[in-house]
Nucleic acid binder design. Structure first.
Length: 595
RNA sequence: GGGGCGGUAGCUCAGCCGGUCAGAGCAGAGGACUCAUAAUCCUUGGGUCGUGGGUUCGAGCCCCACCCGCCCUACCA
């Protein structure tokens, strides 16, 4: 029994999430977490909504709301999306809680006291009317290199060159069109070079484990060679106050959103512990060197999880080249593994909310089964390379693999049992074929479990579905519908079938938690294979406004392995568990997308 | 410009440390069967493994060059 922290990327609360987001971090992390619980580990799965930063400020302005109001609205939408997908967080919270603010400030103070912040003066753009920093990408003007108008401050799309916004000809703010003012400003920079050696040692050690995806470890090592100090404060009025004399009351200086967002893994763990009534419980996952931690995200976040966040922890722990002392949270564990997925595209193009090339989670869930989507992502998602979601592929995989392969096996098994016995019959003497198929199901637990544990979801589900096909073959070969005068043999075949279906259901349940419970009921069970998350309206622990969180009790999850069926359990003819999709919906959905 | 990933049957993709590696699923064709959401099962796959060189007894798998697609390289998160 190992402590396993499942740290899931924090969705940015500037709008609802689309299926590309949840394909990258949501489904894979949930499959992993459910499996690890089944395998007997103590899993703590945490995440939350990331609510600070410039884009939310801008979105709020556009919507005529305060940033907090916008964040409130989007946090709730995101919570509903994630629960709808069955993602089994122990604590899904947000970054505007008082608890999070306090944890972030403690981390800042620890890093500061250990000497890993350097103050530097930089030269940047601000909006004269608001005093806010104008990030490079929010400035546009004529490219000084190719003369194309409309170039962004960071890069010219026309000639592809990277730019300094100060070099733009006639720069204007993309937010309100005003001319930006370039001013000097003081900021705290995280002294990453002073942490580079420790980061390198950590990465070498992780590399030696051989478990990271090759591109993630390579990329992480590569960016280490160009490491330089990075600003951790911003000229902005939306964020967490800098907890230092002379800064804390400054309304226009806040912590950089990424400094605070990654600390969410820790603050959410602490919040979870405080809510369970054992406020120190989180330390088992963070301070015990034996504990494991897996971080799930899309590839655009690798930098923050294999460099910034470990660097923050090393600095807080006092483990960089400047040394330092320990603080309230003790020595924090660095990530065991950074599990990054690639990107999901949509009908061959990139997701783009502004261009309406997008499928929102809520829309998908309003028309299709969550498990059908989860299956698609596990079987064809962007695990090691970009992959494409197309409606025709979704329909095809759902119909031929989930409905015709797995769903049909469940259906024919339950129907035969119901018709012939009305309950699960006991087995007589087993033939070689009986033993072989039972053994195939039992053996699948090792292969599927091993692959899930290594985050090879495509391999895992492929192996599971191959076993489904083996059982279907066994059924066809055994022809139980033709056994008329040998009740013992009939009972034996149906018993074996039922046992196989139950094993396969357990095997597939991390991928398909909703339908796993339905399949269990179809076999006369209680439908409690996979516990589901729930939304809870929580009070802020420190007197702030309340907010919805996702949590759940997953202690009753079914153990990983074959569980003998209970002879005599009543079984009736089942209703279909999986919904077969009409191919005509492909055109409907494409029309919806304007394609 | 620098770094990384990918280019394998119509489609989606497996192929670990080089030697049954030329494969699976889907689609298509033919057949069997009828318990099942017309589902299942069997048979059927000659694709120069992006291109051109090289290393080797032997290369999708190693090296070099090139072509194509994508990602990272941001004071966006």
């Amino acid at each position: 029994m190992t402590k396993v922290l499942s740290a899931v990327a924090w969705p940015y609360a500037n709008g609802p999430r689309h299926i590309g987001h949840v394909a990258g971090f949501g489904v894979p992390s949930d499959v992993f977490s459910r499996y690890m619980r089944m395998a007997g580990h103590d899993v703590l799965m945490v995440s939350g909504s990331d609510e600070h930063g410039t884009p939310i400020l801008i979105a709020a302005d556009e919507a005529g709301l305060t940033p907090q109001q916008l964040a409130d609205r989007n946090h709730r939408l995101i919570v509903e999306d994630l629960v709808g997908l069955g993602l089994s967080y122990d604590m899904y919270t947000r970054t505007t809680t008082r608890n999070h603010h306090a944890v972030v400030q403690e981390m800042f103070r620890g890093v500061h006291e250990n000497g890993y912040f350097v103050e530097q003066t930089t030269y940047g753009a601000i909006s004269p009317s608001t005093g806010r920093t104008l990030p490079d990408r929010y400035i546009e003007g004529t490219c000084p290199l190719c003369g194309t108008p409309g170039a962004r401050g960071d890069q010219c799309d026309a000639c592809g060159n990277q730019l300094d916004p100060h070099d733009l000809v006639d720069p204007v703010s993309r937010i309100n069109g005003e001319k930006p003012e370039f001013v000097e400003t003081r900021h705290f920079f995280l002294d990453l070079p002073a942490l580079a050696e420790a980061l390198g040692e950590w990465l070498d050690e992780r590399d030696a484990s051989g478990t990271w995806r090759p591109n993630v470890i390579k990329f992480s090592k590569n960016i280490l060679s160009e490491i330089r100090p990075r600003a951790m404060t911003r000229d902005i009025d939306w964020g967490i106050a800098v907890p230092l004399e002379g800064w804390v009351d400054n309304p226009t200086k806040k912590l950089y959103v990424w400094f605070d967002a990654v600390i969410g893994y820790l603050s959410a763990s602490i919040e979870w512990a405080r809510r369970t009534g054992d406020p120190e419980a989180w330390r088992q996952w963070w301070n015990d060197p034996e504990a494991l931690s897996y971080y799930f995200m899309g590839k655009d976040n690798i930098t923050f999880h294999s460099q910034i966040w470990p660097a923050e922890m090393l600095a807080y722990n006092g483990q960089g080249s400047r040394g330092g002392s320990q603080h309230e949270y003790g020595v924090l564990n660095l990530p065991t593994e950074v599990v990054s997925s690639e990107f999901l595209t949509m009908e061959g193009r990139k997701f783009s909310s502004s261009k309406k090339v997008v499928i929102y989670v809520a829309d998908l869930l309003s028309r299709y089964q969550a498990d059908a989507f989860r299956y698609f992502v596990a079987a064809a998602g962007p695990e090691n390379q970009d992959s494409d979601f197309s409606w025709s592929e979704f329909v095809q995989r759902t119909n031929s693999e989930l409905v015709a392969g797995w769903g049909n096996l469940v259906s024919r098994t339950a129907t035969l049992v119901a018709k012939n016995f009305g309950e699960i019959p006991s087995a007589g003497d087993l033939t070689d074929a009986d033993r072989a198929v039972l053994e195939a199901c039992r053996a699948a637990f090792d292969e599927v479990g091993d692959n899930i544990g290594r985050n090879r979801m495509r391999h895992a589900i492929t192996a599971a579905m191959r076993t489904v096909a083996e059982v279907n073959k066994y059924v066809t070969d055994s022809e139980p519908w033709k056994i008329k005068d040998d009740p013992d043999r009939l009972a034996t075949v149906l018993h074996v079938m039922t046992q196989c279906v139950q094993d396969l259901n357990t095997l597939l349940s991390p991928f398909l938690p909703f339908t796993a419970n339905e399949v269990d009921r179809a076999l006369g069970g209680a439908g409690d294979v996979q516990p589901l998350p729930r939304i809870e309206e929580a009070d802020d622990l420190d007197g702030g406004p309340g907010y919805p969180v996702i949590t759940g009790d997953y202690s009753t999850i079914r153990p990983w392995g074959s569980l003998p069926v209970v002879v005599g359990t009543p079984v009736s003819k089942p209703a279909p568990v999986f919904t077969k999709l009409d191919p005509a919906l492909v055109d409907d959905e494409l029309a919806r997308l304007g394609l």
